[in-house]
Amino acid sequence: MTNYALSHLQQLEQESIHIIREVASEFERPVMLYSVGKDSGVMLRLAQKAFAPAKIPFKILHVNTRWKFREMITFRDNLMKELDLDFIEWINPEGIKNDIGPFKHGTQRHTHVMKTEGLKQALNNGQYDAAFGGARRDEEKSRAKERIFSFRDRHHQWDPKNQRPELWDLFNCEVQKGESIRVFPLSNWTELDVWLYVHKEQLPMVPLYLAKERPVVKRNGTWIMVDDDRMPLEDGETPEMKMVRFRTLGCYPLTGAIESEADTVPKIIEEMLRSRDSERQGRVIDFDEGNSMEDKKREGYF
């Protein structure tokens, strides 16, 4: 700090804070989407930093699918209470009525109803004109071209060919009634940056990120954790205890674990530096087709 220079983490942090403050000042009803994952955790800390010593001036929203890991929900509830945040949860009531789940209805239908539709409902319901998300551009190729401020029409759809140019730190915050903007303050962060920041800030994280012996079964070459008794076991399938951890968190039947001994944050960073596999490898949802992510985003998925 004495040589008037900022490190890359500090620079990323300042840029994100600037973005969060711009949105809070320019939009009438912003909301921050919180997914309980590491990126959301970092984004939440940045929001605290943006408004300290005042409180975060918008709601924190979790779109739940009822199929998240149990540890995620425990962690979420404790954190929201501890930080005294204005927290709301949304679960698609249609999904509850029809008891939608990945085993009964398949991955695609579950994701569409509980995540994509659930998110749209939650945003319409709250009449939010701006929603923060923790997505990063390095996650996936189609994200590389997404703006920090991603404009959505009345139907929450994204048109990759008609995006607003973004220059300097001047963000166009004008929207018509009913339209909205998704905002990604972590756009320029990488997975490595996120973990370096978690380490630097000593941020609390869901323990599932750290390696531990957990009951898992192998399906389609991926370790799936048996998190509750809603998971039907196939013939001859018995859960075994394995040292595993998760690189991303979502619905437990759709999230693959990796075998790992990394039980501290520095060990996670070390593992990542030496790893030859990308982060989204563990996400069942991305395996469908070459452009699955882009197609989902056009529909309104985050």
Partner: peptide, 26 residues
């Protein structure tokens, strides 16, 4: 290459951001 349309047409149509790092710099 990122988006479907450009992959099919064989052209880049927008600004894409890539990230890499060495010990010294991001």
């Amino acid at each position: 290459d990122g988006l479907q349309a450009e992959r099919e047409q064989g052209i880049t149509i927008d600004v894409a951001y890539r990230y890499f790092a060495t010990d010294r710099r991001k």
